[in-house]
Simulated scan of single mutants.
Amino acid sequence: MSPPLIELQNIEKVYRTGDVEVRAVNGVSLQIERGEFVAIMGSSGSGKSTLMNMLGCLDQPTAGSYLLDGVDVAKLGRAEISRLRNQKLGFVFQSFNLLSRTTACENVELPLFYTSPHVPLRERRQRAIEALEKVGLGARLYNHPNQLSGGQQQRVAIARALVNQPELVLADEPTGNLDTRTSIEVMGLFQTLNDAGITVVMVTHELDIAAYCKRIIVMRDGKIIRDEPSTQRIFAGDQRAALDASEQHASLS
């Protein structure tokens, strides 16, 4: 039996400023299995972003253990952590983090520059094109970010997260800069990726966005206060249809 993809045991993260000690994450234990779609919620200061940074191996816990696919991250050196992050994880951020002077295809290729063994140019380009086609941007390969809408830019960011074929995608407020229709499209894309077997963990403060997920974890003061399946799950196809009907009704009124 394979281990959970993510296993946290009594994770703590303590920040110190002078004599002041802040426990951003306080004794969190958590398992996430392969194929889950999890939302982590909480108000500002709840610890959700700090937890996400530790899940992404961008920060190390002060205490406790983190096993990623059975590997104890604390026992790895910096180069090994970097390699693990590049092979296992894909990241999607609220602000897209695209390079403005490079095309969509070149932005998606970037993670492949840090892959070991080296990926040849022809393969890098082909994998980037396939990732962009997967998110519906096959016709926008050579557009620069300023030639794309916000939703298209986020799709480029998702394609970049997928180009190394990760087991886990971590998304930090991925709809925070998007309008309602575009948010529905992006969440529909995450649902499609999850249906294909990719594990998705997403930080959000919006209940209506969390409802697209299969499981909702709520944090407060660095602790998990609720962890349960989504009982009223939203599906993007239904939301798109409802929005289309609403807009059509409004145009006829």
Rank of each mutant, 00 (worst) to 15 (best):
227 D>I: 10
107 N>S: 12
77 G>H: 10
75 K>M: 07
160 R>P: 09
142 Y>F: 04
177 N>L: 09
219 M>Y: 09
50 T>D: 02
24 A>W: 11
20 V>H: 13
156 V>S: 02
180 T>L: 09
22 V>L: 14
154 Q>N: 06
26 N>S: 12
160 R>C: 01
116 S>Q: 14
200 V>M: 08
77 G>W: 04
153 Q>W: 11
65 S>G: 08
116 S>Y: 07
71 V>N: 00
22 V>F: 11
62 T>G: 09
251 S>Q: 13
253 S>N: 09
97 N>Q: 15
44 S>C: 09
171 A>L: 02
22 V>M: 08
132 L>V: 04
133 E>S: 07
25 V>C: 02
94 Q>H: 13
164 N>L: 12
96 F>E: 14
126 Q>F: 01
137 L>R: 12
74 A>N: 05
125 R>C: 12
152 Q>C: 06
123 E>I: 09
178 L>V: 12
94 Q>E: 07
126 Q>C: 00
159 A>Q: 03
144 H>Q: 13
113 F>T: 04
96 F>N: 09
212 Y>T: 09
23 R>F: 12
244 D>M: 09
166 P>V: 14
245 A>F: 02
247 E>I: 15
190 F>P: 10
212 Y>N: 05
76 L>V: 10
38 V>L: 08
9 Q>Y: 00
99 L>V: 15
10 N>R: 15
9 Q>L: 10
123 E>N: 06
95 S>N: 15
157 A>Y: 06
230 S>L: 00
36 E>V: 05
153 Q>C: 15
147 Q>M: 13
8 L>E: 05
141 L>V: 08
187 M>R: 07
4 P>M: 01
212 Y>M: 12
151 G>R: 05
86 N>L: 02
220 R>N: 15
217 I>L: 09
235 F>N: 05
29 S>A: 11
200 V>C: 12
82 S>M: 08
205 H>D: 01
84 L>D: 00
227 D>R: 08
44 S>T: 10
189 L>D: 10
24 A>L: 08
225 I>C: 03
106 E>W: 01
20 V>S: 13
1 M>L: 01
207 L>P: 15
153 Q>K: 15
159 A>M: 09
198 I>C: 02
23 R>Y: 15
127 R>F: 00
158 I>T: 13
222 G>V: 13
114 Y>D: 00
23 R>N: 05
64 G>A: 04
188 G>Y: 06
21 E>G: 03
102 T>V: 12
82 S>C: 15
14 V>K: 12
